[in-house]
Design a binder for these strands. Structure first.
Length: 437
RNA sequence: GGAGGGGUCGCAUAGUUGGUCUAGUGCGGUGGACUUGAAAUCCACUGUGCCCUUACGGGCACCGCGAGUUCGAAUCUCGCCCCCUCCGCCA
């Protein structure tokens, strides 16, 4: 959420941001409620001050005098209860409205109504050429018997799959490869240098986070809505995460971090669960859009002034990973109308999928500014002693399913086998999938 | 799941017959005195949020969270969350 003081002082900026994001929120109403809120607050505090004062006094009184004061305070109490009721009612409306205010897009975010406004920032790699018609991953997967969606449908339903054999080796190969890069100060320093970014080379701490979390904490991550997208266990008031981001982000909630400890970087490996409620009938073939998939996710907490650089670094890491696999991709700046509500700036990496003859999103990078941290109450104490909210970044390192798709479609060969990207061979233990060996 | 114990201002603790607790003490931290310097010692300060105020300063709230009893609750009652010990179950 945004700071109410910030909204008051930058009303036009916030209005403009909401309009660009296509979010309908009545900010004038919010400020009106805030004025009322303050007024009742003052009234209440004055009454409480009086109560405190009289509570002290009362002990010096005795007998009839004491009875009289008690009677007066009972009266005061009635007024307080009434004011508290009004305050709570108002606060509820106030909070609801405040939470619906989206984050402000960065100045360099393209303005647009929906995904049609997204802008390709750069492209990398050459699309492979084939002297045969490249197949889609669902065909390759079935033929090599490494992806089984049919049996999964019988057991679990649509949008589930069994990954088998070499696909599994590939999954753990990808993870091992990425972790090697992300936990190495030298590798990270190299990536930063190449991207010309003056960021710290602090390694990522690997985490295996919980995949179930309290719904109220998910709310504080601004990720509970739309609730239709979440698997929700009402009996336990727990939701399944849609990304490791959801449990990595709150790792330091209600904490004050030391300035010298930043940036704190984590790489979390977890399964992600999505109901895909709004995507009925879309991408039903293969494993592009699954209810369940595994993912390596980056998360960092940084000083506010380093937030944008941190995101640039995250994108540089993503590009480094894709370049290592020699997969052709494009970096896309997501426009105001397509980005998430809590985002300040968002980039996607879309990777070339020859079997589908198009680029598909494989990674995303979200810079949240202090939007999530404010509600999570994660703060930094600067050297001068000031407290500010940390800035948070999250990004995909590898979404395993989609990376597998990209690999099998780009590395497929005429004989039906799939080459293993050179960088992965040591981690997978073989150079070809589906071959005689 | 059952039984018991516990959650106090960075850490550790005091406080459970309701009102001098707007929370004491120790450690840590900051500033100062002493010292050539340091240690030791002594003195002062030491959280977060909201609100009023140009400022100085002031008010309110917070003793796991939320309700309740009361003129008044860290202290009493109820619900919830979490931690620890033992038992049961279990990868």
């Amino acid at each position: 959420m945004l700071d109410i003081h910030f909204i008051r002082e930058n009303l036009e900026v916030v209005k403009d941001a909401a309009a660009k994001k296509g979010v309908d929120v009545d900010l004038d109403e919010l400020l009106k409620l805030d004025d009322e809120r303050k007024k009742i607050r003052q009234e209440l505090d004055a009454k409480r001050a009086e109560q405190n004062r009289r509570s002290q006094e009362i002990q010096t009184f005795k007998g009839f005098e004491r009875e009289k004061v008690i009677e007066a305070m009972q009266h005061l109490k009635i007024g307080m209860t009434e004011a508290e009721g009004r305050y709570q009612e108002l606060l509820q409306r106030w909070t609801k409205l405040l939470l619906s205010v989206p984050n402000i897009p960065s100045p360099d975010t393209p303005v647009g109504p929906d995904e049609s406004g997204n802008v390709v920032v750069r492209k990398w790699g050459e699309r492979p050429t084939f002297d045969f018609k490249p197949k889609a991953h669902w065909d390759i997967g079935r033929e090599l018997d490494i992806i089984d969606t049919e049996r999964a449908a019988a057991v679990s339903g649509a949008r589930f799959s069994y990954l088998k054999g070499d696909a599994v080796l590939m999954q753990f190969g990808l993870i091992a490869f990425a972790l090697k890069v992300l936990t190495s100060r030298e590798e990270l320093a190299g990536i930063a240098q190449k991207a010309n970014l003056p960021v710290a080379a602090t390694p990522f701490i690997p985490i295996i986070p919980p995949v179930l979390m309290r719904s109220d904490v998910m709310g504080r991550m601004a990720r509970l809505q739309p609730i239709e997208e979440r698997y929700f266990f009402e009996k336990d008031d727990l939701v399944l995460v849609g990304s490791a981001e959801h449990t990595l982000g709150p790792l330091h909630m209600n904490e004050i971090l030391g300035d010298e400890s930043l940036p704190i970087r984590y790489v979390g490996y977890s399964t992600a669960f999505r109901r895909e409620a709004g995507a009925a009938g879309k991408d039903t073939r293969g494993i592009l859009r699954q209810h369940q998939f595994d993912k390596l996710e980056l998360e960092s907490f940084s000083r506010p002034e380093n937030g944008y650089q941190e995101q640039d670094f995250f994108v540089a890491i993503q590009e480094h990973l894709m370049q290592s696999l020699k997969l052709p991709y494009q970096v896309v700046a997501i426009c105001t109308g397509d980005m998430g509500k809590p985002d300040q700036r968002q980039f996607d990496i879309e990777t070339w999928m020859p079997g589908q003859d198009t680029y598909r999103e494989t990674q995303t990078s979200d810079y949240m500014g202090g939007y999530q941290a404010r509600r999570l109450n994660t703060r930094v104490r600067s050297k001068s002693g000031d407290l500010t909210h940390v800035h948070m970044n999250d990004a995909t390192a590898f979404a395993i399913g989609r990376t597998l798709i990209a690999i099998v479609e780009n590395y497929q060969q005429a004989d039906g086998t799939v080459k293993v990207p050179e960088a992965l061979v040591p981690y997978v233990g073989k150079a070809v999938i589906g071959g005689a060996g």
